[in-house]
Design a binder for these strands. Sequence first.
DNA 1: GCCGTTTTCGGCCCGACTGTTTTCAGTCG
Length: 574
Amino acid sequence: MKNHEVAKILAEIGEYLDMQNVPFKPRAYEKVAGVVDGLEEDIAVTYERGGIKALGEIPGVGVSIAEKIEEYLETGRIKYYEELKKKTPVDLSTLTQVEGLGPKKIKKLYEELRIKNLDDLEKAAKAGKIRKLESFGVTSEENILKGIEFLRKSGGRFILGFAMPTVKEIEDRLGRLKEVKRVVVAGSVRRRKETIGDVDVLVVSSKPAPVMDYFTSMPEVINVYAKGDTKSAIKIKNGLDVDLRVVPVESFGAALNYFTGSKDHNVALRRIAMDKGYKLNEYGLFRGKKQVAGKSEEEVYETLGLDYVEPELREMTGEIIAAGKHKLPKLIGYNDLKGDLQTQSSWTDGANSIEELAQAALKAGLEYIAITDHTKRLAMTGGLDEKGLLKQMAEIDKINKKLKSRKVKITLLKGTECDILKDGSLDIDDKTLSQLDVVGVSVHSYFNLPKEEQTKRIVRAMKNPHVDILFHPTGRVLNKRPAYEVDMDEIIETAVSTGTVLEVDALPDRLDLKDEYVRRCVEKGVKIAIDSDAHSVTHFAYLEYGISQARRGWATREDVINAWPLEKMLKMLK
DNA sequence: GCCGTTTTCGGCCCGACTGTTTTCAGTCG
């Protein structure tokens, strides 16, 4: 996969141009770098498939950048980039990660002190050389040293579901201050991105000073980047950066909108505002000096002639056009799930008994869950064979009866998370599968098969007449391992032709399917299931993150089979 | 350097904070 290396070079070209004060081009390169990095297809494959024309179809890629990408793919280098690099031969992508250092300062550091990389920078700072440079000073030097230390220690993004308890705690504490009228977490947290880089907290208060004092002196604060009347920024112990903005009540909606992003969504809104003769900023929507909207987000969208856009959709993937045409979907709600179709019990690697899972699910507001323990191929989990499954089915019948007699309103379904073997055959015979309510299948081995073989393997499994759901379809684990190579278009086509459901596994580090695949399923009419993949009673809480991912994929309640009543859901299954 | 059912040329989001400046450039989001 060449996308990341191509993106990195494009981003560096942008920074080099920034160094030279070239107007506008830096933004073009910066933007296209982000696009290329996020491409799902390997850009080398795109090029093989359609040549330079296909490259030009990537948003943000025009003639000039397409040529440069082609040059890189053909020769492994880009002359233009190398010339820029020759002039200022520094490790740009690392140095720009140092908080407070941008292209201009890096240029100066190179020209005056020959600083090329992080080590040079650290040495110079420690030797007190940086403070002597014009427009630098003692504070800058100290900040650089701090920045280097943080960069070496942390770096990387945080998984939303794992960072959320910390975020909620800060939110709650700020909310309890008497000077705080309202507190909301905006940014990528509110958009429910699967990973977050930092946290943007918005507060309404007429007395910001004590709020800022409290915020910057919380016990977990390890650095204060900035502290002012309207904005402060800190880093906390676990490495997370948190920004706090204080806004007046009449600007709350505009500020919430602005700080929720995404950046591209905001830019588009501002353009629409300008076209209509308004000005939109974080303080409100203005005509001349008069504020015409901004108290609430709804008001802002409405005044611009748009329907309200849910935060999860604000990624500039067509939501603004849809909002203008009143064609946004009514997303599945956070309380809409009635069931959970993947849970593991103590029969294999789950921590709790079937009955404990049932009770916990009931508490989580569910009406039915499928018990889907592993199968024998996963020996280390004590995976069940046909005999074990039959035994478990009998046990589930017994527990269902017991629950019913006690008027406990939850139904247990008999299921399996059956292993897909290397050749696409299944780990359990058809006869046994045919007796289950819910047959889920998944890949737990041979992650490194060539794309074609992996795709063929999974397609074969999906074509089994008993298979209902493909669990965690791409096998990725965030911050740990990438998805295996698989042709998702073919998987989705197979789901269409076989009526197989694709899962959104809600474990915070899986979230598999991811949003863009959910969206493709929704477009193709493929149904999805949002499952906790619970291995303990506490894991039902993760369903929330699966719902977020589905919402980010534009899914409605109709698209999600476990948002349906039990009878209707069962009819959907094979 | 990209983009466009207002444009194939002329636009390109904009405000806060910091540090080192005596009025602003650089960085960030």
